[in-house]
Nucleic acid binder design. Structure first.
Length: 604
DNA sequence: CCCCCCCC
């Protein structure tokens, strides 16, 4: 008979989280505390017993019918430490394998849970126990166990929120965590986990990863730095549930987290993370989907959740980050929902490379950023989460819609291709003065706008440079003054070079003027002359060279401009670059202007 | 203690 009890089960109960443990119930006592009854048991594994076993109040009706000497299987439990040293196990779920009747199995000795591993005392049935009253009072102290939503002073000792919640008793709800408690255990699902990131700045360097934790009451972000990063990164898996004990809580910086919690946690030396092997009712990731047509009304830089059918997938492409020169992989996909609108969603890095867009997968994205470049589009952030074909009702509804209706529907795209429509004109057409008033460029990312402007000045000096002749390089070469030109980027010497243009120009309209930079093909458009021809003119026909510039002036164009703050040795300056230039087509231009008037409610 | 989130 003893064989069926879990060998070393009592030790496991207080020191590990395991799937299930089989014990004999030696005694069971009712503890009256406040308005809640609570049961306390003496459990034995045949070798050791402990009386520091409480039953979660949700098991009160089971306990009332539990006869001494019954054999039970404990399916779920948590272990709490009271007064720094004494451990109490709280049984959250059990099955009765044999009800009562049997004799005591073996001659179990008392198991010592405070500090020392095991008592060396010999088996005795009259060993000292903490008084029921004392244990009960300690157990119900708010600092060790609080269960109510929001309040740390609740003293009920029952599962919080009183209702059908299945957050285990003895485990703190995430929504109750504050920096003012230091003893707590949460049971939470990891819904998102970042890659390891390193930093190196004036305050030092290090590495970190962060994760999003969720239980039935709320969510919270947790970050593990350096030592803790190494310790926990591999064990933490997305979608798994963990008991987490002790971490530092601090006020969350709302600029960087869209999670609904005023606090976030930082793992520290004392943080313990244990996988929860037992079944829980902790939900999976929670979304608050914004339907795609609603995105039109969402401000840029907002993070939102969205769900859609992937109807188009672009190849992975590589872009060069403007500020750092870093190469980044990206992939654009188009998602559509039953609002009949579709939007572009950009995936980065591994997400982009590993994405499989075949068979129109449903993409649920949490915390993606809304951009207003050329209409509206969406982009993943490192903190965003993605689920493919999630098993949620919105997903099934969308699939049904797509199969029946959506797949044949002409849907409207909120993301205008390349951000322009009609004669290279952006829907985002403004005057130069408007861009100034709106402080375009005064944020981390570049701003783009289109404007109708007159070319009023061209800086001839330094507009041409000797560029590397290697295909696609275009880096400036060094004239070695022996007929050889050296490219530092290719680390090669050439016997020729290409003339290339980098032209400074001033554009003006009725509101303001702006200095802009035009590269190669855009400069060629303004000058009406190739860079090679211009280079030749400069060397052989000074008058014609000058004339090329004068005849280019005072013409009107639609310019598409990129505005971004740049730093030149600690000095910040707004830099405007021409990304497209088109001769002014009055018909197209008037159409856009009329539309603007219409949207302002002004029309003839 | 990070906090970048890119490109058109």
């Amino acid at each position: 008979m003893a064989a069926q009890l879990t060998n070393g089960g009592i030790h496991k109960l207080f020191n590990e989280h395991v799937e299930s443990l089989v014990f004999q119930v030696l005694t069971i006592k009712i503890i009256q505390s406040g308005n809640h009854d609570r049961f306390r048991m003496k459990l034995s594994d045949g070798t050791h017993y402990s009386a520091c076993c409480m039953l979660g109040t949700q098991l009160n009706d089971v306990a009332e019918n539990l006869a001494p000497n019954s054999i039970i299987r404990v399916n779920r439990y948590v272990c709490n430490t009271i007064n720094e040293s004494r451990k109490v196990a709280i049984i959250l779920d059990l099955d009765v394998l044999h009800s009562g009747g049997e004799a005591v199995i073996g001659t179990p000795a008392q198991f010592e849970t405070s500090g020392q591993q095991e008592s060396s005392s010999t088996a005795s049935t009259n060993v000292q126990q903490p008084s029921t009253k004392t244990l009960s009072n300690q157990f119900d102290q708010p600092r060790t166990n609080t269960f109510s939503r929001g309040s740390v002073n609740a003293n009920q000792g029952s599962s919080f929120a009183g209702g059908s919640s299945s957050v285990p008793a003895g485990v703190h709800p995430i929504s109750s965590l504050t920096p003012y408690q230091n003893k707590w255990t949460i049971c939470a699902r990891v819904t998102n986990k970042s890659d390891i990131r390193t930093w190196n700045n004036s305050r030092g360097q290090g590495k970190l990863f962060s994760m999003d934790l969720l239980d039935e009451t709320g969510e919270i972000r947790a970050t593990a730095f350096n030592e803790q990063c190494d310790k926990f990164y591999n064990m933490i898996e997305i979608d798994k549930v963990y008991y987490i004990t002790q971490a530092q809580l601090k006020t969350a910086d709302k600029r960087y987290s869209s999670l609904k919690n005023d606090y976030e946690m930082t793992f520290n030396q004392g943080t313990q993370v244990t996988a929860c092997q037992q079944k829980t009712n902790i939900p999976n990731m929670q979304f608050e989907f914004v339907s795609i047509d609603q995105l039109e009304n969402v401000e840029r830089d907002t993070t939102i959740d969205v769900i859609g059918i992937c109807k188009e997938v672009a190849e992975v492409s590589t872009i060069t980050q403007k500020t750092t020169g870093k190469e980044l992989k990206k992939r654009d996909i188009q998602i559509v929902d039953d609002s009949g609108k579709e939007v572009r969603l950009t995936l980065w890095g591994e997400k982009a490379e590993n994405f499989d867009g075949s068979l129109n997968p449903i993409i649920a994205a949490k915390g993606v950023k809304v951009s207003d470049f050329g209409g509206k589009s969406l982009s993943f952030l490192s903190s965003s989460a993605m689920q493919v074909n999630p098993d949620i009702k919105e997903s099934h509804k969308l699939r049904a819609w797509y199969e029946n209706v959506g797949c044949n529907l002409q849907t409207e795209n909120l993301s205008k291709q390349g951000g322009s429509s009609g004669g290279g004109m952006d829907s985002n057409l403004k005057m130069i003065g408007e861009a100034v008033v709106e402080n375009l460029g005064y944020r981390d990312q570049a701003d783009y706008y289109s404007t109708k402007a007159t070319l009023v000045f061209l800086k001839k000096e330094n507009c041409l440079y000797t560029a590397c002749p290697s295909d696609g390089c275009n880096k400036k070469v060094i004239d070695m003054n022996n007929g050889v030109y050296r490219c530092e980027k290719c680390n090669k010497e050439y016997d020729s070079f290409n003339w290339r243009l980098m032209l400074q120009a001033s554009l003006a309209d009725g509101t303001d003027s702006v200095w802009v930079t035009l590269f190669q093909e855009h400069a060629e458009t303004l000058l009406g002359c190739t860079s090679a021809n211009l280079g030749a003119l400069r060397e052989h026909d000074e008058n014609a060279f000058q004339a090329t510039f004068s005849s280019a002036l005072f013409k009107e164009y639609i310019f598409k401009l990129r505005v971004k703050m740049e730093s030149y040795n600690d000095e910040k300056r707004l830099k405007t670059t021409v990304v497209a230039v088109t001769p002014l087509n009055y018909k197209d231009y008037n159409k856009v202007i009329l539309n603007q008037l219409k949207s302002m409610g002004i029309s003839s």
